[in-house]
Amino acid sequence: MKSVENNKKHWRQRAYRSRYLLMMMMVPFLYLIIFQYVPMYGVQIAFRDYNPYVGILKSPWVGFAHFIDFFQSTYFFRLLRNTLTISLLQLIVAFPAAVILALMINELQNKLIQRAVQTIAYLPHFISTVVVAGLVLSVLSTRTGIVNQAIKALGMEEISFMTQSKMFPFIILFAEIWQNTGWGSIIYLAAMTAIDPALYEAAIVDGASRWEQVWNITLPCILPTIIIQFILKVGGLFTVGYQKILLLYNPQIYENADVIGTYVYRRGLMGLEYSFGAAVDLFNTVLNLIMLLVFNAICRKVSDTSLW
């Protein structure tokens, strides 16, 4: 009994001793409550019929009606398919590209060249989404774009990229690779700096070629980092960067370009169907959360590396 009392006292004392730190923490804490947790609480409009005149709490409950509406609409399958296509393409192509780039940069012996390549590779990351979208449109434009100029120089018919629905996922993929492969490689390069040089020395003594060193030393050493990044990517499989899509798509190519994020914006905010939009968005968030939890559990079982 005495120890409980002691603990209680200890508890108060510890809180009192941390009072200044608590005071500091209060500012970001209140910020998070207002700008993150209040919207989380507001997510309940997904289960209500939101009426702006009476407010969130007085709008009538409708249960899962909006979700059922969404699941039964023709958009459901299309949005899911497009979102998955675009993000799977990125997972399969853009994700390994960053790892490969890091391995290649790491193989450069000359530090000066290494730095130059890194400087160039990271550069597009700092260009704004709007400018990158503008760049994509200009590069692919039918009359003046360099891609079509090259196509015409090869004697082929010019391609109208932005009106062909099937091309869109690949255009987004290329834009993503162009802008973020370099930046994505930093984290692997950081992991590589932690590899013990003695491993390479031993491998050289054993007569391992450079390729064998990459395959048998560098890659296994950064594998935990790769797994963590992979889990995070899979956890976001149903969130594609819809901002770029919102800038680049047009009604002509909605068939393959419309994703969950853009649909929430169009129907929910533009169409003023707040409750319906919030329901679609919530469905998306929950889907992501499930993916993250499942994949994290699998990775923990299989490889001992996981987020938590």
Binding site: F35, P39, Y50, D281, L289
Partner: peptide, 21 residues
């Protein structure tokens, strides 16, 4: 407080509740 912070990384109210706020 760490939990309060980390939760916001994996779950959020989304576009529309934030807009209403």
């Amino acid at each position: 407080f760490t939990a309060v912070l980390m939760i916001t990384m994996f779950f959020s109210g989304g576009m529309i509740p934030t807009f209403l706020l």
